[in-house]
Design a protein around this nucleic acid. Structure first.
Lengths: 344, 344
DNA sequence: CAGTGTATTGGGAGCGCTCCCAAGACCGGG
DNA sequence: CCCGGTCTTGGGAGCGCTCCCAATACACTG
């Protein structure tokens, strides 16, 4: 048997709190929402009543009356397995959760399927009345951000999509992470440093390549396009790129891969080619994932502050919802950290 | 400037849909909720109006009037990093998301902190009026499940907490996964098979140990308690246990670790002791995580269908919310799969 | 043809809250 | 002592929806 339906799930209502405190409903509401226009004595009376009854506001009623929901959505593009995979997703969620812990904002998780679904999603997000949206791993050609913008829905994305990102965004410093990694290789005496890039349509991958170039230039090493092999963030792609590099420049002595997973693919090929790591070839990855820690030899890698990124995204969104003065959209870039292990 | 506040965010209301279709509000509601007591002609008229106006029901209003929310919460115990880590969390979420995709249920993510917060959480969950709760990685002594039960809140947990789990639960077949792993070792000629267990207060860890014992018994191998080393699911714990095992039984020729991470710790110790894997000692893990695939040699491991577990949890919860006839709580146990790689 | 049912419909009465207006309490200046 | 202001307060009017009751329309049955 289902339990008999009770008003408000058997919970006290604002009206009851007000009655108990001997005040009107409006006054009780004012206290609960922290309005300053309440006398001290009244405030205390209401707070006591709240505590005694264990009152918690009914969100649905609040949302309906107040035209807001105190909820934000985290939209995850489902097919984008790269992002769904370790370590991004859980770290982002943890950061967002931490930022929301003190608020009474709720976090709604939405898995967006294909592009058609994405279009409908915008409609749903407005209809379901979330106060804002966190978009993770959007492609440059994803229609969702613009749709949300048109609907006037506050929105923060992770990772700028290009140099002048119009939306509020939080990103790690891909350029400087790559630069520091390559600088580290050069400092340790490597002279022929190759790189395996991610998909260059992804702005972050492009920035990592820029950082690689900048480090070489800063060290006075001549650029060599044949030391640059494009890949796609996958292990197979990394292996393929490594084979190309070995064929083109057999005497390279270091490789900077734009992701740990690609570094894993490269390591496999290097092993098959009997190149010792790090004696013959130094190897650095990007992400500092579980893979890096458990690779043999343990992989030097660039750590992104992903949890912190989640936290900042949430903070930015909350500010935007609260109504930032509409200057240009803020772009937060967080520093990376080079974690040196045995592979370099 | 914030956009001027508009009724219902500028979206059409049920009233408008009804007017457009030339019917009453009640009738429109009936069509939208799929009531059978509507004539065919009326249904079509309302559906046309819905399509033309792009009507989407206002969730808050629905929740308030209907005393339900069409939302469920996924409660993640935050300090439990083991569970938050790869691969569980994202896989569970993916499964839950898939199960919810066809419904119009929303998924709420709640990170529960310490035990005190957990107590308050139960209150919040009822006040926030979710229709049900998905609990992952609950400890045997977590107060939350009982609290939810008392409040009459539908609830499904991942992983039974003990042999007679009173709550609806979804679990992988820990017993048979372990049994199959050890059987595989024995089949390949290993005769002195050790095991590194997880924390035995965790029911799943206990079951894996049971499976280990059952496999030995089935093969007619004598039980040897000194081949069993307890650990705690961590890498350091796995290493420590492995050292103990080597000291106690130097001639062991196989180890079944109850998690990949512990297997990684064990591998480190085996390497330091100059035992070759798999020539001298075969090694098997549990979870089939990224760690297993990237370990050297690649680790044979027991794969749990985690995404499927998420899916089943959501399905079970939906059934419970819909009002299953209250027989005993269902317990779903899903089969595991032994992924054989190079370490065995 | 009256009587009884069945299928379909409209709309009133809320759900618990926020917003806001008007009323009361109180203060000080003229 | 009266008047205009400020500070508090109560409670009406919704928010958009679901639930449910009563009304209507129609089809039978006896």
């Amino acid at each position: 048997m289902a339990a008999a339906r009770v008003r408000n799930g058997g919970r006290p209502t604002l009206e009851e709190v007000a009655a108990r405190a001997g005040v009107g409903r409006g006054t009780a509401s004012r206290v609960i929402n922290g309005s300053p226009r309440v006398s001290e004595a009244t405030r205390e009376a209401v707070e006591a009543a709240v505590a005694e009854l264990g009152y918690v506001p009914n969100r649905a009623a609040r949302a309906l009356a107040g035209n807001r929901t105190d909820a934000i959505a985290l939209v995850v593009p489902e097919p984008e397995t790269r992002f769904f995979a370790e370590p991004y997703f859980s770290a982002i969620v943890r950061g967002v959760g931490a930022a929301l812990a003190d608020t009474d904002m709720q976090l709604l998780l939405t898995l967006a399927g294909n592009d058609r679904e994405r279009r409908r999603l915008a409609q749903y997000l407005t209809a379901h009345r979330v106060d804002g949206v966190l978009l993770v791993a959007v492609h440059a050609d994803d229609p969702l951000p613009e749709l949300l913008e048109q609907l006037g829905m506050p929105c923060v994305i992770s990772g700028a999509r290009h140099a002048n990102e119009p939306l509020a965004s939080v990103d790690s410093d891909n350029f400087d992470g790559a630069r520091a990694a390559v600088e580290h290789l050069i400092t340790r005496g490597r002279r022929s440093v190759a790189t395996i890039t991610g998909r260059l349509e992804v702005y972050g991958a492009q920035r990592r390549l820029d950082g690689y170039r900048a480090a070489l230039a800063a060290a006075g090493l001549p650029p060599d396009e044949r030391l640059i092999a494009p890949a796609d963030f996958t292990e197979e792609g990394g292996a393929r790129a490594m084979r190309e590099l070995l064929a083109r420049r057999p005497h390279l002595d270091a490789v900077f891969a734009a992701s740990d997973v690609m570094a894993a693919g490269a390591r496999q090929v290097l092993r098959e080619a009997d190149r010792r790591i790090p004696e013959d070839v130094a190897l650095i990855g990007f992400d500092d994932s579980v893979v890096a820690r458990h690779m043999h030899p343990a992989l030097t890698s660039v750590r992104q502050p992903i949890e912190e990124m989640g936290r900042r995204m949430a903070q930015l969104l909350l500010e935007e919802i609260a109504g930032r003065v509409g200057e240009e959209r803020p772009t937060v870039v967080l520093p990376t950290e080079l974690v040196v292990r045995d592979s370099s």
